[in-house]
Design a protein around this nucleic acid. Sequence first.
DNA 1: TACATTTGCTTAAACGTTTAAGCAAATATA
DNA 2: TATATTTGCTTAAACGTTTAAGCAAATGTA
Lengths: 344, 344
Amino acid sequence: MKKKKTTIKDIANVLNISAAAVSKALHDDTRISDKTKKAVKQVAENLNYQPNHLASALRSGKSKLVGVIVPRTNSNFFSSVLQNIEEVLNKKGYNIIITQSNESYKKECDNIDTLLFTQVDGIIASMANETVDLSYYEKVKSKGIPLILFDRGENDLNVDYIGINDYESSHSIVEHLVNNGCKRIAHIGGYKRTRIFNNRIRGYIDALKKYNLPLDTELLTESGLTIKDGREMMQQLLNLKERPDAVYVAGDYAALGALQVLNENNIKIPEEIALVGFGNEPFTDMVTPRITSVKQHSEEIGKQAALAFLKYNKDEVVHQTLNKIILNAELIVRDSSNKKALLN
Amino acid sequence: MKKKKTTIKDIANVLNISAAAVSKALHDDTRISDKTKKAVKQVAENLNYQPNHLASALRSGKSKLVGVIVPRTNSNFFSSVLQNIEEVLNKKGYNIIITQSNESYKKECDNIDTLLFTQVDGIIASMANETVDLSYYEKVKSKGIPLILFDRGENDLNVDYIGINDYESSHSIVEHLVNNGCKRIAHIGGYKRTRIFNNRIRGYIDALKKYNLPLDTELLTESGLTIKDGREMMQQLLNLKERPDAVYVAGDYAALGALQVLNENNIKIPEEIALVGFGNEPFTDMVTPRITSVKQHSEEIGKQAALAFLKYNKDEVVHQTLNKIILNAELIVRDSSNKKALLN
DNA sequence: TACATTTGCTTAAACGTTTAAGCAAATATA
DNA sequence: TATATTTGCTTAAACGTTTAAGCAAATGTA
């Protein structure tokens, strides 16, 4: 009753040749005659043969699967990176397994275990906000499985990393705000322990210094950059005796929360307070006013991450070193910070 | 030089017992003494043993992997469904492989091939907009692999389906608009060939009839419901000699596009034209004005889809029949359609 | 013609598990 | 005490591939 799948042996029996010959024929081995190859492929098609991936993976030690770990999929950035990773890897015969950490360290560890268990040939990951302990990633490395990080990475792991120039981008955001006449610029930042957010904070601070602006600790906050965090931090800033005249938020979702609070308080944007986000999520271009943000080239990040993995796919023994690819992000100026446009 | 992984045999050698005994000990077979079990588990831990999933899957014929196909991951609805599917299945020892069709039929077929190739134990899917030919899904069924559909499904496949009461929801949207004084209600719908969109269209039409409202063909459009589609269809409606006083859009992204066009044309919402979306994506609560929408209970859909799959996991031979679980969606009234609130 | 090389296959082992069958020793039953 | 049952393991085959080694026939070379 149970449906039996067609195997290589079934094909072999039909043609009265060995299973080995069938395997070789299907892989276009040079030592198999064209006649046999043609016959094998024909029979394979007739019997609706589908190779058993588990068997070949077990035998060859290569699963042709790559695991990807992202904090979440429902952001345009990650979704776009995923799509591009998939596109590049599919062409090379790899399939990808997507997992989400939901910004949880525990979940991230579980994801790594799942992927190792599934015998993936490599892991491409962007770390959760919570992640500080790198031992789980060290485990991946110690198993000789190529590890590629993007966006949220860590130098100390000494693996490939694809990201953008956060420091410089942050610097130019402040520059842009200064050029628009802002004098008291706040920063709703991510957690400093995460390298990219630390870099954005450094860029912010150094730019303030450069333009001789006040570096007020109450203008600099750290959070998980959710919509809720954005709301809370913005409210906090509004409660100050001396309010900022610009707020640069290190993530678009938090920027959206900030925008909501500003709108609810009938604060004119950008006249009273200018607003800048980070990530160029599609909604930044949909809300009122449209939010100035930074485009991270998610397509290129995805492609480069996939290519970084592919570098290792022929190596017997994988030896990774810190290898950074840093792309130049792009500031997209919109209404929320464009005070100059109002003057015309 | 190549790192050798610890196998069951290594453990067997250490303890001078057979590999079979080790396998059984690790699975808590009753015929293995507690003493041996303890020893095996201790050695397994010491040697950092990780079971080879490929080998066990090959032998047992069960991969403990479930494939999920969604049109895209970067919508809150699908992302939330995914999370809940994963949560339920993980508890039962299954892992999920997420793939995206990007609303493309071709990609969807590729995804199915990928998943079959990976030897998944089941497939949970929501169909692409483009999909009309069901032969690829028939292929899944014919292989005896449980197939569960959600949201975008098809009765003709005779498999499990989890969705919401689209017809009734659509009906109550029109009812809500009527209650708010709207007399000329347009519908920016999805493609009729997709069951859920067809049901929404039917609900719309029947509700119009019930309230003796004009059923004007120029007020009813079909599209892919992207933001762009929403913009175009809204523009089309504005160009009519007799404009509608309400627009009900069958998807939130298209509703957003419609909103943009209305705002750009300085049309007062809801006074001049009331707007309703579908899906309750987070941004409906973020834009100005906030968009009335329908909450689809994505969490419950995800859970039920996972449970529907689990029903089959013990069966040797899978026999599926049409088995629908229909959840009641919930209308979330917001500013974009709440004319009554303005009267107070 | 004699030998070397190439072609086209076969055989058999291997990948790391699981599991049916079996067997000896220990324990229970009458 | 003799027999039946249970306990605790072992042996060996199997899952569906890949691949190293080998061999006979065909073809090439001198």
